[in-house]
Design a protein around this nucleic acid. Sequence first.
DNA 1: TCAAGGTAATTAGCCAGCTAATCAATATTC
DNA 2: GAATATTGATTAGCTGGCTAATTACCTTGA
Lengths: 169, 169
Amino acid sequence: MFLLKDLPEDRYVERFSQKYGPIEPKRLNLFLTVLRSGSDLLVELDNFLERFGLTHGRWITLVLLMREPDVSARPATLAEKQGVRRATMTGLTQRLEMDGLVRRIPDDEDGRSVRICLTEAGADLLQAIMPEYYRRVGDMTAGIPDEQVEAATMAINELNGRADLLSAP
Amino acid sequence: MFLLKDLPEDRYVERFSQKYGPIEPKRLNLFLTVLRSGSDLLVELDNFLERFGLTHGRWITLVLLMREPDVSARPATLAEKQGVRRATMTGLTQRLEMDGLVRRIPDDEDGRSVRICLTEAGADLLQAIMPEYYRRVGDMTAGIPDEQVEAATMAINELNGRADLLSAP
DNA sequence: TCAAGGTAATTAGCCAGCTAATCAATATTC
DNA sequence: GAATATTGATTAGCTGGCTAATTACCTTGA
């Protein structure tokens, strides 16, 4: 969760810029805008999913399973795709199983592993969520002009592609 | 933290779209891109700040104090500006005080309250961080064309302005 | 062939948000 | 001016990520 309601005013950045070197307020502002909006939207997404008894982490796990041809996968694969640790996936799938949304069955190809299968109930829940989700995202994005959609996606991807520069040695 | 490495492929969204109604993959993609990049950038920001013994929450508190004319503020104000609960701010300022970066002195205008003051050490730490931070954000954003910076900021703000539609009743 | 190292899942415990409940001080209203 | 409501900070306990360590199983190469 990001944490800054009021982004710095340009004149504030200008002052710093004079002290420390050239920084364009508009670019700093874009960076902060992505941080804050990402955080805000995530909170809203969680609020939306809460009605269905899910968090976005639990939801994405179900979505990933749904994308599989046989609606099942191994924890390590899911963790990789979802961008969480395997330890985290252990907890996620355990709780999803308790809620009857997935089933965990021993993997006969690899004795260390397990197959996570989407249950009927899990699939039904997704069927209930997805149309509503798409509709809402559609509504949210409806006011953005087409060119801006393209430009914004490109800009953010460019930014994200260099994200490692932020913490590079 | 958002959690989805691979955004859905357009053809996948198309399939859903046919089932459930019109959803433009490019717009869904923008939404997901903001979520994911916000999350990724936040992780990188935390990695960067870790070297200085800070998290982004601790850092923003210091920044907010620095912005005040008298480099001090009350916890409730800081919490408000930072977008966290007051209970969270209690913990943040307590730990910042332990590290000698702020001082908490009783407020003589309001007996319930406290003034959080940036210490010399806190100010020094910020002075060490900010130039580096601006430089890195500058580098990260350098490759984005000017028009895209503008367009992206507008688009994201438009999206964020409607964020409440996601969880509206 | 079997010892050594690698990989899968798990457990235990950390962290920094959160909410709910509490206590103290201030403001408001009758 | 006493009763009530509000506001500020705090505490306790929840959550869902995380890392590190453990256990079980697989794979490889001398």
